[in-house]
Amino acid sequence: MTTLSVTRATLHKDLRMEWRSKDAINSMLFFALLVVVIFSFAFNPTAEESRSIAGGLVWVAFLFAAVVALNQTWARELRNQVLDAYRVSPAPPNALFVAKALGNFLFVVVLEVLMTPLFVVFYNLRSVGPVWQLVVVALLGTWALVVNGTFFAALSIRTRSREIMLPLLLFPISIPAVLAMVDATTSILTGEASPDFWIKMLAVYDLVFTAVCLLLFESVLNAE
């Protein structure tokens, strides 16, 4: 009950602050745009080829862009050391985690919605398989990146050179999720295979790591 209200309040506050500064979304968007452009120079694919590599390109672009956003979320709490105000309050730590993860989820989803048309245009994409499956993969995959990303971003603010630490910790753990997202996306785009296994795998990954994050977040938040 209190967890829910604190989560809601924190999410509301984060969205309002992001709306006012637009730090995360702007840097994220521009970064993803750069990746798209550079990739299209680097690979210069035909329509047929692009269909089979697009899954990889799209998700690598989103992964890098998400890291930019993830670093932002806690940076905001470290300015003026506001995080201390949360930590001295009786509010449950997991409420903070869930709010941050949901906020990041929203940011990355917005990014994806804005970037997808660009990908479609630049790479001449057209899906052979059903598009609604892409949406499912995107939602599950984004949560997979964001839930661990939020956790490891919180973990790396306790280390030296924190902005470098986040990808170093996040990428190895995310390998199965990235593999699943990329392969599922490719399967749907080319229509050659069923993405069912990957979707189930992403769901399992999401469940398992959400549980692990919730279990360990308090220890990490208070590690000082």
């Binding site: 661990n148 956790f151 973990l155 306790r158 280390t159 910790l169 190895p172 753990i173 390998i175 199965p176 398992v208 790591f209 692990v212 360990l216 220890s219 990490v220 590690a223």
Partner: peptide
């Protein structure tokens, strides 16, 4: 921090 990461790694 290390203990937390170890658990993530093992689960992964």
């Amino acid at each position: 921090l290390a203990a937390a990461l170890a658990i993530f790694g093992f689960v992964d």
